[in-house]
């Protein structure tokens, strides 16, 4: 059980990359997980359809905080289809034993132990859902 809370996860949650809010964002979405009341806000700025700045606020569990931190750390330069692709890869990793995402998104492999805990999948996915929704609100 504690393997859900390995050092890497705790480390990412504590790092909280790009925590806070952006001034004057191009897109901003707040999403709740109705199951537990976790709340994530993602602000983005865009240039040429790709993310040029991003910030997050997570009133959420460690898993969700770590996921938001990794997302914000890696998202610069990503567009909607990139994020959708990453989201479906983590979703498949959690739900269908699919391989971990490659390249810079490989950091998400720290969530592999979450696969056994269905009730926690949404914690990892919530920040990605918020970021994708934020991108969609822009165009």
């Amino acid at each position: 059980m504690t393997n859900l809370y390995q050092k890497d996860v705790l480390h990412h949650a504590a790092a909280a990359h790009r925590a806070g809010r952006l001034d004057d964002p191009d897109g901003s979405v707040m999403l709740d997980n109705p199951l537990c009341g976790d709340r994530v806000t993602i602000d983005i700025k865009l240039s040429d359809g790709a993310i040029s700045d991003i910030a997050h606020e997570a009133k959420a569990c460690v898993l969700c905080q770590a996921s938001a931190s990794i997302l914000c750390d890696k998202a610069i330069g990503a567009d909607a289809s990139t994020l959708e692709n990453v989201q479906s890869q983590i979703s498949a990793m959690l739900k269908q034993d699919a391989p971990v995402p490659q390249g810079k998104w490989e950091a998400l492999s720290i969530f592999l132990p979450v696969a056994d805990h269905k009730s926690r999948h949404a914690c990892v996915l919530l920040p990605f859902e918020a970021a994708i929704n934020a991108l969609r609100t822009v165009d």
Binding site: M1, T2, Y5, A60, C61, V62, L63, R120, C123
Partner: peptide, 12 residues
């Protein structure tokens, strides 16, 4: 500390 983290760890 988020309640779900506490619950998950105590489930262990």
């Amino acid at each position: 500390l988020h309640p779900h983290d506490i619950c998950q760890l105590l489930d262990g």
